[in-house]
């Protein structure tokens, strides 16, 4: 076979493969819509925010408590993880360029590699008992946020680190030549110059936090209620799917797909914002 013919055949195969790979997303969207359509058609979308509670056996599917729980745990986790992650990146960029900085980097990479189910296990056996001493039952919004914070911290730290590393070193040299202290450089130059990337990292981390299932499921108690305090047990949207999917049928099952669809929409919107502000996914 001639080289050109070989390339033409190769290209056909590659296009086929790429078509399949792109079809996955389309299939996912199609199946989520198809599975959730019956209950949307029957009750309308408003039902999911206005119904009297989440009582699948009685046909009321109010997702608001779950939405609130997801939002609250994620927001708190972001509030905890952002300063820590940014501080870690600043540390390895400005305070410990040598072996200590590398060490911290590896700690963060390793942390990123810990499976969320293991974080959940550790949270349930270590963190939850500690919270229980303060206010029962221990499994709570707070526990969920703490574990989530630990999980998304690497995302924020690594995106910030990458952004700081991509700053032209002229910034640092020029600033040092002006007689600015290291801290002044960090506060007045480095952070403002990488603001957009840090923001993008935070958006990506929020998306991960909202989409996380196991870690929150294992430590936050899974009671369907609007949280009134940090120590209340809550059930997030993802946990709800994981817990009820095993036995749900009919409208109940369909409403779980509705929550999956809603979750996907929110998470993708966040990812889109992150993309807009110039963040790239750090695979770690």
């Amino acid at each position: 076979m001639s080289p050109s013919a070989r390339d033409a055949r190769l290209l056909r195969w590659l296009a086929f493969a790429a078509g399949l790979a792109s079809a996955v997303l389309i299939l996912i969207v199609l199946f989520l819509m198809q599975e959730s359509w019956p209950v949307i058609a029957r009750y309308g979308l408003v039902h999911f925010v206005s119904a009297r509670g989440w009582h699948p056996t009685e046909g009321t599917f109010n997702l608001v408590p779950m939405l609130a729980a997801s939002a609250a745990t994620s927001a708190l986790a972001i509030a905890l993880a952002t300063p820590l992650g940014v501080a870690a990146a600043i540390f390895s960029r400005f305070y410990a360029a040598g072996i200590v900085g590398r060490l911290l980097h590896w700690v963060i990479v390793l942390l990123a590699g810990i499976p969320s189910v293991v974080l959940g296990l550790w949270g349930l056996t270590v963190i939850v008992p500690l919270i229980l001493k303060v206010a029962p039952p221990g499994t709570s919004l707070l526990a969920g946020s703490l574990i989530l914070a630990l999980m998304i911290l690497p995302t924020i730290a690594l995106t910030t680190e990458a952004a700081l590393a991509s700053l032209p070193s002229a910034y640092g040299i020029g600033a040092a030549a002006l007689g600015l202290s290291r801290e002044a450089i960090i506060i007045n130059i480095a952070i403002p110059a990488t603001k957009a990337s840090i923001f993008a990292g935070v958006m990506l981390a929020s998306a991960r936090a909202l989409g996380e299932t196991m870690a929150v499921l294992m430590v936050s108690g899974n009671v369907v209620q609007l949280p009134k305090s940090l120590f209340d047990p809550v059930r997030t949207l993802t946990a709800n799917i994981a817990l009820e999917m095993a036995y749900a049928t009919g409208d109940h099952r369909a409403s779980l797909f509705v929550s999956g669809l809603a979750l996907t929409a929110v998470v993708l919107a966040l990812a889109a914002v992150a993309r807009r502000s110039g963040g790239q996914v750090v695979h770690a």
Binding site: V24, L25, L27, I28, F31, L32, E35, A207, L210, G211, E212, T213, T238, I241, A242, M245, L256, F257, G260, L263, T264, V267, L268, L270, A271, V281
Partner: peptide, 12 residues
């Protein structure tokens, strides 16, 4: 696709 939560992959 990279942003889709894993539980949604489970549903799918």
């Amino acid at each position: 696709l990279a942003g889709v939560p894993s539980i949604v992959f489970g549903l799918f």
